[in-house]
Design a protein around this nucleic acid. Structure first.
Lengths: 218, 218
DNA sequence: CTGTTACACATTACATACAATCTTCTGCTA
DNA sequence: TAGCAGAAGATTGTATGTAATGTGTAACAG
């Protein structure tokens, strides 16, 4: 038995590494909606051939983080108001499911992780560190998703979270972060109580509130 | 203004056509779980180069209809019992959302389409035509999804329906098709009544029942 | 000066070439 | 005969070549 179990799809390929780089640049706003994803340009910049770059860009397109037109290349996907509402409708549903499923799993381990995220979140708010706030927030949601132990949920929700983040980053990073923190605590409380229904409701409410805050003042 | 409005991503590319071919073969069981998706073999069979074939296979992998290992190629994804439960948990949630959203849209047009599907379904059952039953069933679900007018929901649910179909096709095609038909009618009734909550519940119940029937005798 | 057309350029989509890795078969050893 | 080493073959991953399509600019006509 090997010590370091590789995931089913190894991340050793150049195409996967390029994908990670591009996804990272989109999510940290090094690349913003509308920016071109020129295959030859990226290839020369990253000092490799066009094949893995093209493969990475295609994957972004399939996942919806980029949009392409025939013979005209791909651009970073924009998320307008209507899109955002659509994204959040699905996200709300799936994050509710994730919270509900998480209760059925190893609650003890999950609670530890969520508490750590909340502690980081609190510290980041105190330090007024927007990047840290965002990181703690994402860690919370990711922990919930992981704890659901449903790879299909993971696959469905992952790209949605990416698109949601693209949109959120267009506005202020952290609007009323204290409210998000309070909502996270409510989710945690429901999980600690072992109440799947309450966890689902709390998660759905949180997602709805995030959207409402984002829309509250363009 | 042009007459034939192309979708954003045109389907003219060879890679897209190959994707359609492969997806079709998987969903009609010309290719079954575990079958290798050999790029050079498919390329020679389809009489084109490996580039578009590779791109199509990669897309199937991203969408989860195929699984690959590094340097060992891709195979048609298998869906075991645990996977199936996971798929249906997500599918239930998303189809419920789709039904709920569909009520908000053009109900009149939707009702017409759903009625047509139900009529086809009824006729197919009378004729004991399993392929037609399956087609009518899929048309119903597809109409519901389309009527939700949420491209992100579409993108999330599409691959799930594919994986669900892979699994269902492993068993009998149509178990108690009359029950599925009755459940479809219940969903339609809720939509006609303009009751989003009832539509969501009916859709969720239907998905759960489909899974239960599939599992009821391996 | 404005609008159109033609041409040069860049990029995409596909084809092919090469290198690294895996599988499988063969033949040797114990 | 069973088991393993090793080479041959095939396939994947990456690089590069080529044809087709789209874009942008500049010259020219009105």
């Amino acid at each position: 038995m090997s010590v370091d179990e590789q995931p089913l799809i190894s991340r050793q390929r150049l195409a996967d590494q390029v994908y990670d780089v591009l996804r990272g640049r989109i999510l940290d706003r090094s690349l913003v909606p509308g920016d071109r994803l020129s295959v030859p340009l990226l290839a020369s910049e990253l000092d490799l051939s066009r094949s893995p770059v093209r493969e990475a860009v295609q994957r972004l397109v399939v996942e919806g983080l980029a949009e392409e037109q025939l013979h005209r290349g791909a651009r970073v996907a924009g998320v307008d108001a209507a899109d955002l509402a659509d994204v959040f409708a699905v996200r709300q549903t799936l994050e509710g499911l994730a919270a509900s499923l998480a209760v059925a799993g190893d609650t003890a381990g999950l609670v530890t992780v969520l508490r750590a995220s909340i502690a980081d979140h609190t510290a980041a708010i105190a330090a007024d560190d927007e990047k840290a706030i965002l990181a703690a927030d994402q860690a919370f949601h990711q922990a919930l998703l992981t704890a659901a132990h449903n790879p299909h949920l993971d696959r469905a929700l992952g790209p949605l979270l990416g698109r949601a983040q693209i949109a959120m980053l267009s506005g202020d990073l952290s609007r009323w972060p204290r409210k998000a923190l309070a909502e996270h605590k409510a989710i945690l409380a429901a999980i600690r109580a072992g109440d799947a229904g309450a966890a689902e409701t709390a998660a759905r409410d949180h997602v709805a509130a995030v959207l409402a805050r984002h829309l509250s003042r363009g």
